[in-house]
Simulated scan of single mutants.
Amino acid sequence: MVASRVLCLIALLALPTEAATRVRVQSVTVAGLAYHQGAAVWSQLKIGDALSLVHEADNAHDAWAVRVDWQGRTLGYLPREQSAPIAAALDHGRRLTARIAQLREHPNPRERILIEVFVELQTP
């Protein structure tokens, strides 16, 4: 697991800072949906909706925590085991975007929202 995090981080940081394309770097479910506003806005969410990613370096539970927001409301967080490369990329000024890729009814709230994270590249 640590090796895959390191490889993902190296790949994100090695990408050129300028290109006119977007590269998907992660497809992941949202953790903590039941503890934040995700359940309250569930009926309003749509596939393709833009999401904001915020690295919460001062998070008391996880220094690599990446919060997932939708229209100013916190849906949850990237899973702890997958957040470090994204947090590091955000810290290094990478332009990351995210969107809802899939919504599904599921008894486990962590399986309800699948998101995709992209790094935005710009050409020189």
Rank of each mutant, 00 (worst) to 15 (best):
L114E: 13
S27V: 15
N108C: 10
H92I: 03
P124R: 09
A50R: 15
H61T: 04
N59V: 03
L96G: 03
A88P: 01
E18W: 14
C8L: 15
P109N: 11
L75W: 12
R22G: 03
A60R: 14
A57D: 09
Y35E: 08
L51M: 13
S52P: 05
E81T: 13
H61N: 08
A63V: 07
L90R: 02
H36Q: 13
Q26M: 10
G72K: 08
I47Y: 00
P79V: 04
G93M: 09
A88F: 01
R94L: 05
L9M: 12
G76L: 07
A14F: 13
S43T: 15
L103P: 09
T17H: 05
L45H: 00
D69E: 12
Y77V: 13
D62W: 01
V54W: 06
R95H: 09
A57P: 03
T74M: 15
A60G: 06
V117K: 06
T123W: 01
E18Y: 12
Q71F: 04
D58H: 15
T74P: 01
A19E: 11
H36S: 06
L12E: 02
R110Q: 14
I100C: 03
H36K: 06
A88M: 11
W70F: 06
R22K: 14
L96K: 00
N59P: 04
R95E: 09
R112S: 08
A34S: 14
G93Y: 10
D91T: 10
P107Q: 13
G48C: 04
A101Y: 00
T74I: 13
I47R: 12
V41A: 05
T17Y: 02
V54I: 15
Y77N: 12
V54E: 09
T21A: 08
L51H: 05
I47A: 11
K46R: 15
P79T: 06
L75T: 07
V54A: 07
L114S: 12
P109E: 06
S27Y: 13
D62C: 05
G72R: 08
P85M: 10
A87V: 02
H36C: 09
D49R: 02
I10F: 13
V6I: 14
R95I: 08
M1A: 11
S43N: 14
Y77Q: 12
G76W: 02
R110P: 03
V68W: 00
R95D: 05
R95Y: 05
